[in-house]
Nucleic acid binder design. Structure first.
Length: 463
DNA sequence: CGACGGGACGC
DNA sequence: CGACGGGACGC
């Protein structure tokens, strides 16, 4: 049961990644003392005290290999700085560099506390946080979004406070999240700078919330600044910040021409209670302010909507006319803009949104709520469109009406899509009602999807 | 006819 | 400052 062939040993050193500790001790400390004191943190697979070839005396370097990265991280967190033997110097404990790496720089906590995950596109940052908080307190979550449309790319970052928490998340979270350690944000730009403190500071400044103010003058003509004020700023920071990002987007996207929507965040990813919305035209911006200033959303809170630059006269006849033009556009039957129908239904715009956006040769039941994003998929429908696919929001509106719809997935570049349902009967019902029907001039074939291909097991390694 | 399965942050 | 040993299945 000992380590045998060198090949195996060498391979095990980095398997799993970050499961080996680099320990700096006093030269007087013996191997069994180290083994003893580290053994309480997990399954030690090997302890190697580096000794001088000739004298056989300790060089004050020790490697401790654990079965799991979370165990190694916990040991590091707990043992770093501890005095093992009265009168000796405190020990230093780091995650060992992988053996293939030539660098001898310490592995920083920053590299060990942020994970990168794949999530449903429907996940809000709140969903993300709720999913991953069970492994430890989260400093912040971010979802990568398309900058112009604001839609999620299905990828997110979760920053923990401790390496052991990130390691635990990677080890224990559902495999479908494909959690791995995130590469540090700043790329190879900065060469190894030696001071340990510098990295932290650099990273603190990373998440810049001020950048939208750096836009060239003149591009902000149609911006609105949204102050959404909450009743109190007590404990519930997460609901105030994360929950509303998508909702704000969806709400202002009801008005056509939205080009940009971003929640203002501080360096820690926390909401500052403002969002910046830009429309492609003055009329949309005027209309947005007209309709949404003072709007109660979420319930119990009132939005304050103002123009970003106060120089322009928004009540000018031109602005008014532009607004009326937008209003007319919205009332006209065919508006095919992107939207989130869920929010529209509860936002007082239902008259606009549900008004003959859908034309079909079949009687549809009224829309139903979506199933929660993390629901288990019980059935998938495979839909073929002819001559071209329908927009996702239209599909959501149509396919949700049988209940338990989790998600609409269109295959990019193809004329097919998948509908995920949390309930088999609902999916079957949708299929039997919708198969062969025509929606907005698009004929649909609706079938049960073949089971998904076996998932490939390749995943990126961080080391 | 018509098939999914991937991965990176406005410095 | 403080970074990598020992020793070798059986085809």
């Amino acid at each position: 049961m000992e380590e045998c062939a060198s090949k195996q040993v060498t391979e095990n050193l980095d398997d799993p990644p970050n499961s080996r500790l680099f320990v700096v001790t006093s030269r007087s400390i013996a191997e069994d003392v180290l083994r003893e004191s580290f053994s309480v943190f997990g399954d030690i697979q090997a302890v190697w005290l580096v000794k001088d070839k000739q004298t056989k005396e300790s060089k004050g370097i020790c490697y401790v290999k654990f079965a799991k990265s979370s165990q190694a991280c916990l040991a590091m967190e707990e043992m770093h700085g501890k005095v093992l033997v009265e009168g000796t110097k405190p020990i230093k404990v780091f995650i060992a560099q992988s053996r293939s790496s030539s660098r001898h720089r310490d592995v920083e906590d920053e590299e060990l506390t942020r994970i990168f995950v794949m999530i449903p596109k429907t996940f809000s940052e709140e969903d993300l946080k709720n999913t991953f908080k069970e492994y430890g307190e989260i400093e912040y979550c971010v979802i990568i979004k398309n900058k112009s449309t604001g839609e999620s790319k299905g990828l997110g970052y979760v920053r923990y406070y401790k390496p052991s928490q990130a390691a635990l998340a990677i080890e224990k979270c559902d495999k479908t999240y494909r959690a791995i350690l995130a590469e540090p944000r700043t790329k190879a730009a900065t060469t190894e700078d030696y001071s340990g403190a510098a990295a932290r500071v650099d990273y603190m400044g990373g998440n810049d919330s001020m950048n939208q103010y750096a836009l060239p003058l003149g591009t902000q003509l149609f911006d609105c600044i949204i102050n959404y004020l909450f009743n109190d700023s007590s404990k519930d920071v997460t609901t105030t910040s994360n929950m509303t990002e998508e909702q704000i987007f969806a709400l202002f996207d009801i008005i056509p021409g939205m080009e940009y929507c971003e929640l203002q965040r501080d360096a820690y990813g926390m909401s500052k209670g403002h969002a910046l919305i830009r429309y492609s035209n003055l009329g949309s911006a005027v209309y947005a302010k007209e309709k949404l200033n003072g709007f109660e959303y979420p319930p119990g809170n009132r939005l304050a909507v103002n123009f970003f630059d106060d120089g322009e006269d928004r009540c000018s006849p031109v602005g008014r006319m532009a607004m009326q033009f937008v209003a007319a556009q919205m009332m006209s039957a065919v508006w095919n803009g992107p939207s989130t129908s869920q929010v529209m239904k509860s936002s007082g715009f239902s008259a606009v949104s549900s008004m003959s956006r859908i034309q079909t040769d079949v009687n549809l039941p009224p829309p139903k709520k979506l199933a929660p994003p993390d629901s288990k998929t019980k059935e998938r429908l495979f839909v073929v469109f002819s001559p071209s696919p329908l927009p996702p929001d239209v599909l959501e509106d149509v396919f949700c009406r049988f209940g338990s719809l989790i998600e609409v997935h269109l295959v990019p570049g193809r004329k097919v899509g998948y509908m995920k349902y949390a309930d088999k009967q609902c999916a079957d019902e949708a299929m039997s009602v919708l198969h062969g029907r025509v929606v907005n001039g698009v004929k649909m074939k609706v079938m049960l999807a073949d089971p998904p291909r076996e998932e490939s097991h390749k995943r990126l390694r961080t080391y």
